[in-house]
Amino acid sequence: MSRPHAGPPESDPAILTRAIESLLTEKGLIDPKALDAMVDTYENKIGPRNGAKVVARAWVDPGYKARLLADATAAIKELGFSGLQGEDMVVVENTADVHNVLVCTLCSCYPWPTLGLPPNWYKAAPYRARVVADPRGVLKEFGLEVPETTEIRTWDTTAELRYLVLPQRPAGTENLSEEQLADLVTRDSMIGVGLAKAARGETRA
């Protein structure tokens, strides 16, 4: 809890955070070391590389992909990912005809075990307000132009299901290993505001 007195003044939320944490610690209600462990978990152990492994497995293993689309929670757990804010998962597949994009207009619902904690823009007002009414305009802000002939399906995930987009496998990746494929899977492609990266030497359409 102690910190050097030098340096810039803390912002109000920083002071409020310390006030709450110090009171609860004194009362024996929280253990600051447990907070350290939570921070470490989501800074260093859980993040979008987990989701990328799920996607890469689905790209190389049709049986796994079928299980993933039928019961995402169980299929994701096969790879060791489960828990807080991913207790009940749904995976939606992008195809040539359908492009899926995720949002929670009411707060910040997001699949933590596979993607980690959401980026700030996902939780902020502009994205939540606009992606439901103008997904094409929003996706252009991310540099993604979806053809007029492709359906954009926006998922407003405000209940207790958590979603993950299965992006399309990029062309020209037939010879890549599962591990190499996972490197092409970005966080944004699993939210639906981007595509998987093109294989090296390929240009993305």
């Binding site: 955070t17 209600l29 929280i30 447990a34 921070v39 800074e43 994205y127 929003v138």
Partner: peptide, 26 residues
């Protein structure tokens, strides 16, 4: 506008991490 940054840390300042962790803690 949304202005997504190219990258950002999970917690932009230390207090954000503490505040996040206090959900499970409380």
């Amino acid at each position: 506008p949304i202005n997504p940054p190219a990258s950002e840390p999970v917690f932009r300042e230390p207090w954000e991490g503490r505040a996040f962790a206090m959900f499970a803690g409380t």
